[in-house]
Computed example of a mutant assay.
Amino acid sequence: MDLLDSVKLKYPGARAWAFGDSPQMANELAELVVKGIKTASCGSLASFNADEDAPGPGSYHIILNGQGAPVCVIRMVSLRLVCFSEVTEAFARQEGEGDLSLAYWREEHKAFFTREGVYAEDMELVAEEFKVVEVV
């Protein structure tokens, strides 16, 4: 049994996934989560609605690095809708990326959602807050 299977046994029903859209981004963001710097994330409402296994409050998730190996388990503590243009400096800091500024958050997330083909200044996001329950 490999490490991922072992973690799945400990957290039945937990989904395993990686942050971002590249192995490098997955590694960087997973490291920020493990260090406790990244305690929030967001995705487009369209992607959330298209995902039949979308996270709910209280759900557990196995975070993978860019090589598909588990690095930690998180638990969703809140989900809320927010418009891209209304994301706050506080939420940008919780995302834990770059210099933690809202300007950095907007630039990087605009690029990410543009690559995803869904960017709009008025797009709705699902803002997720989580806590690390185990580093594996």
Results as ranks from 00 to 15, higher is better:
L3T: 10
L4Y: 02
V7D: 12
L9H: 08
K10M: 12
Y11T: 02
Y11S: 06
P12R: 12
G13E: 12
R15A: 13
A16E: 05
A16P: 04
W17G: 06
W17E: 06
A18K: 05
G20K: 10
G20I: 03
G20M: 10
D21F: 01
S22V: 04
M25L: 14
N27L: 05
E31G: 08
V33L: 11
V33P: 01
G36V: 02
I37R: 14
I37L: 14
I37T: 15
K38L: 12
K38A: 10
A40F: 09
A40V: 03
A40Q: 05
A40Y: 06
A40C: 07
S41Q: 06
L45I: 05
S47A: 15
F48M: 07
N49P: 01
A50N: 14
D51W: 07
A54P: 01
A54M: 09
A54R: 15
P57N: 14
G58K: 07
S59E: 15
S59I: 00
Y60N: 11
H61E: 14
I63F: 13
I63M: 09
Q67A: 14
Q67V: 02
G68C: 06
G68D: 05
A69E: 15
A69S: 12
P70E: 09
V71T: 15
V71I: 07
C72M: 07
V73E: 03
I74C: 05
I74D: 04
R75K: 15
M76C: 12
V77G: 08
S78P: 10
R80D: 10
R80V: 00
V82H: 08
V82P: 00
F84M: 10
S85G: 02
E86Y: 06
E86A: 14
E86T: 05
V87P: 10
T88Y: 04
E89I: 01
F91D: 12
F91S: 03
A92Y: 09
A92Q: 09
A92C: 04
R93N: 07
R93C: 07
Q94C: 11
E97N: 04
E97I: 00
L100Y: 15
S101G: 07
L102V: 01
L102N: 03
A103N: 11
Y104R: 01
Y104V: 00
W105P: 03
R106G: 04
E107S: 12
E108H: 10
E108W: 03
E108Q: 14
H109D: 07
H109E: 09
A111K: 15
F113G: 09
T114E: 14
T114W: 05
G117N: 07
A120R: 15
D122A: 13
M123R: 05
M123Q: 04
M123A: 08
E124Y: 04
E124L: 13
A127V: 00
F130Q: 05
K131T: 12
V132I: 11
V132M: 11
E134G: 07
E134K: 09
V135W: 03
V136W: 13
